[in-house]
Write a protein that binds this DNA or RNA. Structure first.
Length: 776
DNA sequence: TCACTATGCTCG
DNA sequence: GTACGAGCATAGTGAA
């Protein structure tokens, strides 16, 4: 009944039905699932979607499914004898009829290969609307297997029935001797799990409210330090009422435990714990395991790394979320106002979950050979990022105020002009209103469409302007200024920390699927630079008085990585010669002497170089270069003809993704690419581009992370005052006292250049100045 | 009031 | 349909 291909959801790894599909043939499926070929159908039918992420999914997991098949044989027999199933959850699930014979992509596949008339293409969607699919299936006549057991799914998400942790095992630490006992066990074991509670989400702006500790599974303590409400828990008014954090004599032992690097610390998002403790004057040392990072390293893409999600997925535990504790939005109660016993239950539970998840991810990291990446890059980076966030960066407030006023004036003027040309007043920021003005009232040609109507984006306006219309140019100008004002000039001063007078971004370590960092609240990785007017904003980022900024960029790191991986002779030679790579590329592509490369040729070669990294096709390249598609195609062909090693390498990554399901960076970081075997052309294409780009982008991320770790180590070891403030993917920004500048410049360059040995040299350019603008 | 989507724009 | 990876602002919509 089965055809040649089957869709898997990375069995055994949990999974997300929307993303992690993987198409394999039947023999492969049998091997991958660890199920005899004749049982593959039953297996797939039985497990359906067991992922906890899937709305409505209640799981018979893969292991249980295999066990049931081995025990009973085929799926019909399992259902007939459901009462004999010993696993309680599986039995109830089977008996209730909502068993795991459900609509899943596996079933879509099975049905696809049944000898019936069915519009398969219409059903093969990546985020199946389950209700719609259910209806479609039930209305159609096909194999009894599906018709009999498919049932409509509940509209709302249901979590697995979790055994709620007994609250009695989570206790507040209200006695000095109890605290001493916990500390003693932690020391005896050599490690423990912790979870801090802060007054705000941001660990830097908020204060430490309390600390949860766990030493063994199923039992944890919470030490309240600065809660304003004792709640129903009677703590005899000792530790609860506004104690200065960790200053009491009985807390000195705890401090030394936290600061003892020899005692391992386990947690979820240790960077936040580190920062909250630091605000309380405690230097957390001995970071040993961060389950958020563990989850990220095991599978950086398309999965949740939040503690609640991880506990649900891997421990089958339903945790109390902070949202449940405090409410949300307008009605949210500050944590400091929440009853201590409730905070205790929540925080202690989180410490307990982190402790239990450690074992799970340790095993997975070992299984996938990711321990080194975890131990030598991601975990050490936590302290570096914490230090960066802690330090923050200063902005020149009067500068921003003046710029804001100026932009407001400009905006006003352009707005008046736009309204005059349009013949009426309207909200320029509203796409629908703008569409009406441009394409209906003024009758300009709609050049491109979005889902909801004609596009009005910058490329369209650019083209319309080129056709001689006045309004598009004004609109582009308005948009640019509006963006600068709204996203940067007005927004950044509001994020200055009241206490430090600096801006403290968050560097997120578990967001980007390639291994890159991201920055948020505010995002300091997308401060304008490409336009002259935008770049002015960087004048407002300043070092502390008397100090300087030092900026250090990797030159063309991604292209160098491409040269390294591909080993392409011409490419490697070009880099080793140490000259301008885009110029060299141009010379090779067009077969001319380097000296004869025109600026236009160089610019085009640069574009083609980037096009390669991103897997850009002729269509987009033509658009970008403003040339016919056929010409762009010729460029690309020429490029790969002259750099055959590059073509070969890119193909090899696609093959790797198809065969192994993932691709790897230079330090073994994986990215799973289930889209690569999708039957949908554009999804598959996307998978192929991701497969070729991820190793390049991800390796660059690995390398700069290593450099950051080593630089930070040196700064600390040599007790320098200079600090790393920002990372922008291939660039580091430092704040330096003048006396350290010369030294630091060579130190940073040295460590960045030699962070990871490649087949081609790495180059770093540095710049200094008294604003970010000047560091170029 | 809030969550959510769509659109558009900033960066490497 | 058509370039990888991110975060954020505004408008608009529908439900509580």
């Amino acid at each position: 009944m089965l055809g040649e291909h089957i869709c898997l959801l990375n069995p055994g790894r949990g999974g997300n039905a929307g993303v992690e599909e993987e198409w394999v043939d039947e023999r492969n499926a049998s091997q991958r699932l660890g199920v005899a070929p004749e049982y593959v159908t039953d297996y797939l039918a039985l497990i359906g979607d067991s992922s906890d992420n899937v709305p409505g999914a209640r799981g018979i997991g893969p292991k249980t499914a295999i066990g049931l098949i081995e025990q009973f044989g085929h799926v019909e027999d399992i259902l007939a004898r459901a009462g004999e199933v010993t696993n309680k959850r599986a039995r109830e699930s089977l008996q209730s009829g909502e068993a795991e014979i459900r609509l899943s992509k596996e079933l879509v596949t099975i049905i696809a290969d049944m000898p019936i008339e069915l519009d398969i293409e219409a059903l093969r969607v990546h985020e199946p609307d389950r209700e719609q699919l259910t209806k479609a299936f039930l209305e159609l006549e096909f194999g009894s297997l599906v018709r009999e057991y498919a049932t409509p799914l509940p509209p709302t998400a249901t979590a697995p029935a979790a055994a709620a942790p007994v609250s009695a095992t989570y206790q507040a630490l209200d006695q000095a001797d109890a605290l001493a006992e916990v500390i003693a066990s932690a020391r005896a074991q050599g490690w423990f799990a912790l979870r801090t509670v802060g007054s705000t989400t941001s660990p830097i702006s908020g204060e430490l409210l309390g600390l949860a500790l766990a030493v063994a599974p199923g039992r944890a303590w919470y030490l309240p330090l600065a809660h304003r409400r004792p709640g129903v828990l009677d703590l005899d008014g000792v530790q609860v009422r506004n104690l200065p954090p960790l200053t009491g004599p009985e807390l000195q032992e705890l401090r030394s435990l936290l600061e003892d690097a020899a005692v391992g610390k386990v947690g979820h998002d240790l960077k936040a714990d580190l920062l909250r403790l630091r605000r309380a004057g405690v230097q957390l040392k001995g970071l040993d395991f961060d389950v958020m990072l563990g989850s990220y390293v095991v599978d950086p893409g398309g999965r949740e790394h939040g503690l609640d999600a991880l506990a649900l997925q891997h421990l089958n535990q339903r945790t109390t979320t902070v949202e449940e504790l405090c409410g949300k939005g307008r009605d949210a109660v500050p944590l400091a106002e929440c009853a201590v016993d409730r905070v205790t239950a929540c925080a202690a539970m989180h410490a307990d979950m982190a402790l239990q998840l450690r074992a799970h991810f340790l095993e997975e990291l070992q299984q996938y050979e990711l321990v080194k990446l975890f131990r030598e890059i991601e975990l050490p980076l936590v302290e570096v990022l914490a230090e960066m966030e802690w330090t923050g960066i200063a902005i020149d407030e009067p500068f921003f105020a003046a710029a804001g006023a100026r932009l407001a004036r400009d905006l006003q003027l352009i707005q008046e002009e736009i309204w005059k040309v349009a013949g009426e007043r309207f909200n320029i920021g509203s796409t629908p209103q703008l569409r009406y003005i441009l394409f209906e009232k003024l009758g300009l040609p709609a050049l491109r469409k979005t889902k909801t109507g004609p596009s009005t984006d910058a490329t369209v306006l650019e083209e319309l302007a080129a056709q001689g219309h006045e309004l598009p140019r004004l609109l582009m100008e308005w948009r640019q200024i509006d963006k600068l004002k709204g996203t940067y000039v007005d927004a950044l001063p509001l994020l200055i920390d009241r206490r430090t007078r600096r801006i403290h971004t968050s560097f997120n370590q578990t967001v980007a699927a390639t291994g890159r960092l991201s920055s948020s609240d505010p995002n300091l990785q997308n401060i304008p630079i490409r336009t002259a007017q935008g770049a002015e904003i960087r004048r407002g980022f300043v070092p502390r008085p008397g100090w300087l900024f030092l900026g250090a960029d990797y030159s063309q790191i991604e292209l160098r990585i491409l040269a390294h991986f591909s080993g392409d002779e011409a490419f490697v030679t070009a880099f080793r010669s140490g000259h301008d790579i885009h110029r060299q590329t141009a010379a090779v592509i067009w077969g001319v002497e380097v000296a004869d490369v025109t600026p236009r040729m160089r610019a085009d070669a640069k574009t083609v170089n980037f096009a390669t990294i991103y897997g850009q096709g002729p269509f987009a390249l033509a658009q970008q270069l403003g040339i016919p598609q056929a010409e762009a195609r010729a460029f690309i062909d020429q490029y790969f003809e002259r750099f055959p090693g590059v073509r070969k390498y890119l193909d090899s990554q696609v093959e790797m993704a198809r065969g192994c399901g993932y691709v790897e960076t230079i330090s073994g970081r994986r990215r799973y690419i289930p889209e690569i075997n999708s039957r949908n052309y554009s999804i598959r294409q996307f998978g192929e581009r991701a497969a070729t780009n991820a190793p390049v982008q991800g390796s660059a991320a690995d390398i700069i992370k290593l450099a950051m770790i080593r630089i930070h180590e040196r700064l600390m070891a040599e007790q320098r005052e200079a600090r790393l403030l920002l990372q922008v993917h291939d660039e580091l920004l430092f704040e330096v006292p003048p006396a350290e500048l010369a030294d630091l410049q060579s130190l940073v360059t040295e460590l960045m250049v030699h962070a990871f040995p490649l087949a081609v040299p790495l180059e770093v350019t540095v710049g200094t100045g008294s604003s970010w603008y000047e560091c170029k």
